[in-house]
Simulated scan of single mutants.
Amino acid sequence: MQKICVIGGSRYFGKLLVQRLQAAGHQVTVINRGSTPSPPGVAHLVADRDDEAALIAALGSRTFDVVVDQVCYTPVQAAIAARAFSSRTRRYVMTSTIEVYDPVTASLPTVPPGTPVPEEAVDPSTWLVAMDLPWHDAAYLEAHYAEGKRQAEAVFAQHQGFAFAAVRSAHVLGGGAAEFTGRLAHYVGHVTQGTRITVHAETLPTVFIHYKELADLLLWAATLTDVTGSINACSDGPLDVYDLGAVIAAQAGRKAMYRSAAADEPASPFSFDRHYVMDNARAKELGFSFSHTRDWLPGAVAEAIDASAASTA
C-alpha cells in the first residue's frame, strides 16, 4: 500500500484514477476546491492550489509516497506545488498534453510528417520558465495552453525536491456524457444531423487515448514504476479527421460530410494541418502495453451517440 495524493481527480479519467488507486489498496487523498465530494474511504482536503498558504495549511503534516497532479496548467501553479510538496513526497507525476509538441506554439525541432514525435523533442529540464507572464488571466492562459504546460513541466523537472514524471496525454475520448471536452460530441452531432464538418484543405493524422487507458497509465506511472522524465501516452494507430468521421458514420448509419475551412477560419477539433503525432515507444519499453485506437473507438462513438440522444430526448 502506498499513500497517494491526487490534485484534482473529481471528473473523467482523474475520477477513474482515484477509484482504481483505491481498488488497488492504496491510501488515497484528494485535494480540490470542494465542489465535488470524494468517494467513501478517500481523504478529502479542500484547498485552492493557487493559494500557497491555504494549500500548505490543508496539507498540515501529511506526507505521501506519490503526488499525481491532474490540474496543473502554469509554471506559477507548478512552483507553488513544488514548494508545498518538496518535503512531503518522494515522487511527483503531472498529467501533461500532446499540445506541448504543437509546432505552431513554440520553436521546436522539425519532425518530418510520418515520423512519430519522441519525448526528447521537448526537454523540460532545459525549457525556459517565465513567471512574470499573465498566467492568472484566463484568456491568456487559454491562448497559451501548450506553453503553460511546457513551463509547468519545466518547473517540476528543474526542481530538486522529488523525482518527477510528466505523462503527456493524447486526445482523450470515451465515456459518453462524461467526456467534458465535447469534441467527440461535436462530430457526432454533425454526422447524425447531416451537417458538414469543417476541415483543413489538407489534413494530417493525430493520436488518441481512451480515458480508461489513460487512467491505467497514470496508475502505472504513479505506483508500478519509478520512471522519471516525459512519457508519451497514446494508443497505437494514428487517425485523421476523415478516419474519425468514417467510424462515427458507420456507428450512426449516416454519411459524414465535410467542407474546407476558408482562410483564417478555424477547422473542427482533430483536423490538423501540422504534424505532431506522438511516439509511444518509451512507455512500451518501460513495460506499459497500449491498445489500438480502432479497437476501442467504435465503442466510444456508440457511447457518444447514446449520450447525444439522451440529451435531446
Rank of each mutant, 00 (worst) to 15 (best):
G60R: 06
Y73I: 10
E142W: 02
T115R: 06
L141P: 00
G148M: 06
G41V: 08
V122A: 02
S35V: 04
V67Q: 09
Y101P: 09
W127E: 15
E147L: 11
S96T: 08
A79C: 09
S61C: 07
K149V: 09
A82V: 07
V46H: 01
A54P: 00
A78F: 06
V68S: 13
A143P: 01
P134W: 14
L45W: 11
P124W: 03
P113E: 05
P116M: 07
A139F: 01
E142N: 12
H136Q: 14
E52Y: 03
S96G: 08
E142M: 11
P39E: 07
D137M: 04
G148N: 03
T115H: 05
V122T: 02
A53W: 02
D123A: 10
V104M: 03
I98Y: 09
E147T: 14
T115A: 09
P134G: 10
R90C: 09
R49A: 05
E147K: 04
P124D: 00
L45M: 10
W127N: 10
G114L: 02
T63H: 13
V129T: 10
I98V: 15
A146F: 04
H144C: 05
A81N: 14
V93Q: 04
E142Y: 02
G41Q: 04
T126V: 15
V66P: 02
S87H: 13
L141M: 14
E99Y: 12
S107W: 00
H44G: 06
L128Q: 15
I56V: 13
C72H: 05
P75V: 02
E52C: 03
Y145P: 01
W127L: 11
F85V: 06
V68F: 09
G25N: 03
L45Y: 11
R83T: 10
A121G: 07
P134I: 05
M131S: 05
A82N: 05
E120C: 11
L59E: 10
V71F: 11
R150D: 04
T29S: 13
Q77K: 02
